[in-house]
């Protein structure tokens, strides 16, 4: 970077900081999601919530949602990059805290061929009420098989049950083969 670029970069850092503040983001990460990362982020958020004297029930819900979201990325994020250098199991992970609620947000690359099936699963979950979700969880636990990567197909159902909210998601086009899948979960702080 030459002088002009460095100045531009430093200004970007400040804008980035302001933008994080404006969106009340307390944690943001982009990269590979490993088990170590999952443990580090959950324990960091746990200690922050304890400091904020968040209720036990809210702390548990945020913890549940974080673990399932992080594991979704590590198990399902599709690879991107060139043929020589492919990235998989990576994505963006964000936690934000407003006056009324927490948001846990993930974003990762998904191959176009998987979008239809994923949308179907998410829409089906969103169409169910509390009792319906409970039945679906039980059925999936009983009949589902653990995938090679250790996924039980239960994560999204669990997030919907724990938050009591719809799964808010969006697919944004990247190129002709892939989309960027964004999912945000909301946990109310008043319980």
């Amino acid at each position: 970077m030459d002088r002009k670029n460095i100045k531009g970069f430093l200004e970007f850092v400040y804008d980035f900081y302001k933008s994080m503040k404006a969106h009340e983001i307390t944690l943001v990460y982009e990269g590979e999601i490993t088990h170590q990362i999952t443990k580090a982020f959950t324990s960091l958020t746990e200690s922050n919530m304890a400091k904020e004297e968040e209720s036990n029930s809210v702390q548990k819900k945020v913890f549940h949602v974080m673990v399932e979201c992080l594991q979704n990325i590590s198990k399902h994020a599709d690879s991107f990059g060139s043929d020589d250098f492919l990235f998989a199991g990576r994505g963006i992970f964000m936690v934000s805290r407003g006056d009324l609620e927490y948001h846990v947000t993930t974003g990762n690359v998904i191959e176009n061929s998987k979008i239809e099936e994923l949308s179907k699963i998410l829409d089906h979950i969103n169409s169910l009420d509390k009792e319906g979700l409970k039945q679906l969880y039980k059925t999936q636990m009983r009949e589902g098989r653990l995938s090679e990567k250790g996924g039980a197909g239960l994560g999204f159902i669990d997030i919907a049950r724990k938050t009591g909210r719809k799964l808010e998601y969006h697919f944004l086009p990247i190129d002709e083969d892939t989309h960027f899948f964004v999912l945000t979960s909301t946990i109310s702080r008043n319980e």
Binding site: H64, E68, G144, A152, L154, D158
Partner: peptide
Amino acid sequence: VYFNTASSKLLL
């Protein structure tokens, strides 16, 4: 006190 969804399957 806590188990994730993957563990819930194994507990079953």
